[in-house]
Design a protein around this nucleic acid. Structure first.
Ligand code: FES
Ligand code: FES
Lengths: 130, 130
DNA sequence: ATAAAATAATACCTACAAGTATTAATTTAT
DNA sequence: ATAAATTAATACTTGTAGGTATTATTTTAT
């Protein structure tokens, strides 16, 4: 499972845009390139727009462009905008946070993969794809 | 998100049993210890039983015991019994597998956390908790 | 024998993520 | 001005993981 389908879509869209280096992307053009249900994609684009990653211009020759320099957009921020990143920080056996005094049975074993994941998404930006 | 709630429950049950070192566990006793909805837990226990991790004995003084030595039970096997481990092996951007010739934009970045996760669950058994 | 205490099977319900449909608003080419 | 091409808003539908309810089966203490 790892991340939600919507996170997957969001990453797909933004990584595509980051690599393609076009000035503007219409929902239609993204739809034909990426394998995401059209209407779902369109709503996602508005969401990503509201979240401040991209900027929409409406109307006949409209579309989306990045709203910020891509070296300021961390993967953690993208994922966090469509699902709760907190669920990754917490305990794998369900505690809201890892209690420092009394960690769960899996705490130690879980530490490495958990940190690898969090560190990767927190220290990597879209620009690192280039 | 990481793993499903059901995986979480399965791990919770089996790690608890592995550490507790009692000869037998009733559904009731597991219910009062672990924070899992009772009926859901009961169904899960039958599932874990069918999967061969534990063995049920019915009747008045029944309950569950491990069906195999716990140093043969890998976390990967537990998770795989309640959700599809394949979804972790595949591409983070949705391809069924990572195409060796043409990996996706995130493939390189994703490699480390992905391997950390898979390696941990594939090389660790319940006995390693002791 | 019978009742109690346990697991098993089956069916149903619920909440939420994922997906779809419809209509509105905005911009620009003509 | 008008129509076309785009994004935005809102509401609805679907699929499925998670959770509940009911009844059946099995075993053992009495
Ligand atoms: S306490 Fe459970 S993972 Fe840290
Ligand atoms: S091809 Fe996407 S993660 Fe490997």
């Amino acid at each position: 499972m790892f991340i939600s389908k919507t996170s997957e879509y969001a990453l797909k869209v933004l990584t595509y845009m980051a690599l393609k280096n076009a000035t503007q992307f219409s929902a239609q053009s993204l739809y034909v390139e990426l394998d995401i249900p059209k209407r779902y994609l369109m709503r996602l684009l508005t969401d990503l727009s509201k979240s401040g990653f991209i900027k929409a211009t409406r109307g006949r020759s409209g579309g989306y462009i990045f709203a910020r320099p891509i070296d300021t957009i961390y993967f953690s921020e993208i994922i966090n905008s469509v699902e709760d990143l907190q669920s990754f920080e917490g305990c794998v056996l369900g505690n809201a946070v890892c209690p420092v005094d009394k960690p769960c049975a899996m705490h130690h074993i879980w530490e490495k993969p958990k940190q690898a994941f969090l560190e990767t998404i927190k220290t990597t930006t879209l620009a690192d794809l280039l």
